[in-house]
């Protein structure tokens, strides 16, 4: 038993953080607000070239042959840096292609030459009808993406974006995520893999981003509490502020620990990995929401401005929170998947 990330895992995180802050800095989100695609081609190219999309894929499709833990380290930084675009959905698409035996397609996603956004049905779907898309759909980062992933607890598959025309762009609350809507009428998914393997991976990697967000908010609030002066002293001397920063720390640490536990459980194929993943998702979502709110509060009036990046943590948390299953669904799963071992 060892929950401390290895040196290799830490260096993945470090390299990812460095690259993401260089090619897709948070400030670029506002600049690209009116662009049809959230991430620039050059940023996408750099990320793909660095091999970040293939970290958890086998080397025969151009991956680095690492596991969910290494992907977790990457996506924690994606969350922390608020990196835009369909990074997670493209990684999931590669796994879906691989799991369904289409290694050529998996290699294209791993290399970044194809991108995948996300489609989620907004209506209830029966278990046995999960491989067919029907009704109102919400789309994440479909612009610039040839494919879309559909991830459910019953299975996961792919659909080509142009099969869902007409596709209507929607204004998104998150400048780093493009939203769209579409309507599907009996559109079958390709590369369908039954079961919740992809869903569990999605949960853990969403949790990873949420943990990164929770940590970033804590760090921003602590820095502000040390430097902002009122009544002649830094505001962090006041317990009302200090203890709020501490609560953010407890939430972030708790979420980080559960995230690592879940990722290691998945890599180790432990019997309660599913429970641990849902728990990680629930805990991380609460931490990200609470910390994002407290960060804005601690920044006072400045916290409410568009200029300050605190709101970006809020909107990314919400946008991610709906992308691959909801918090409510994970809460229910925590209760129904059986007691942790």
């Amino acid at each position: 038993m060892d929950l401390v990330p290895s040196d290799d895992q830490l260096s993945i995180a470090e390299a990812a953080a460095e690259l993401l802050s260089a090619v897709a800095p948070t400030a670029s989100l506002a600049r690209r607000r009116d662009d049809s695609v959230a991430i620039s081609d050059s940023a996408w190219g750099s990320i793909a070239e660095a091999g970040l999309l293939g970290i958890g894929l086998p080397d025969r499709v151009g991956g680095a042959d690492a596991g969910m833990q290494e992907e977790t380290m990457l996506f924690r930084e994606v969350g922390r840096q608020l990196a835009p675009g369909p990074l997670l959905s493209t990684v999931l698409a590669a796994h879906i292609a691989l799991d369904s035996g289409d290694e050529a397609l998996a290699a294209e996603f791993a290399a970044g030459s194809l991108r995948a956004g996300t489609a989620r049905s907004l209506q209830h779907t029966d278990h046995d009808a999960a491989a067919v898309l029907n009704g109102e759909l919400m789309l994440w980062d479909s612009t610039g993406s040839t494919w879309l992933v559909v991830v459910t607890a019953d299975g996961a598959g792919l659909v080509q974006t142009d099969q869902l025309l007409p596709l209507r762009p929607e204004r998104s609350i998150d400048p780093g995520t493009r939203l769209g809507s579409a309507f599907a009428n009996d559109v079958p998914l390709s590369h369908w893999t039954p079961g919740d393997t992809t869903c569990i991976r999605a949960l853990v990697l969403v949790a990873a981003q949420l943990v990164g967000i929770a940590e970033a908010c804590r760090d921003a609030a602590v820095t502000h509490a040390k430097t902002r002066e009122q009544f002649g002293r830094p505001i962090g001397v006041n317990q009302a502020i200090k203890h709020a920063c501490v609560d953010m720390t407890v939430a972030a640490e708790q979420a980080r620990a559960q995230l690592f536990f879940a990722a290691a459980s998945c890599d180790g194929d432990l019997p309660d990995a599913r429970f641990q993943a849902h728990a990680a998702r629930v805990i991380a979502a609460n931490a990200a929401r609470d910390n994002a709110a407290k960060n804005i509060q601690i920044h006072g009036g400045m916290g409410f401005t568009m200029e300050f990046e605190g709101h970006l943590h809020v909107v990314r948390t919400e946008t991610l929170g709906q992308q691959f299953g909801t918090n409510e669904a994970s809460l229910e799963a925590v209760l129904t998947t059986g007691a942790p071992q």
């Binding site: 708790q254 536990f261 629930v282 809460l331 229910e332 925590v334």
Partner: peptide, 28 residues
């Protein structure tokens, strides 16, 4: 009640994870 039970079940799990993380550091 289901929501509250699910929440504390997840939180108790994360408490164990937190302990494991601390113990892992101690072991090093």
């Amino acid at each position: 009640l289901r929501r509250r039970l699910a929440t504390v079940r997840a939180e108790v799990a994360s408490l164990r994870s937190l302990t494991y993380l601390m113990v892992s550091k101690s072991a090093k």
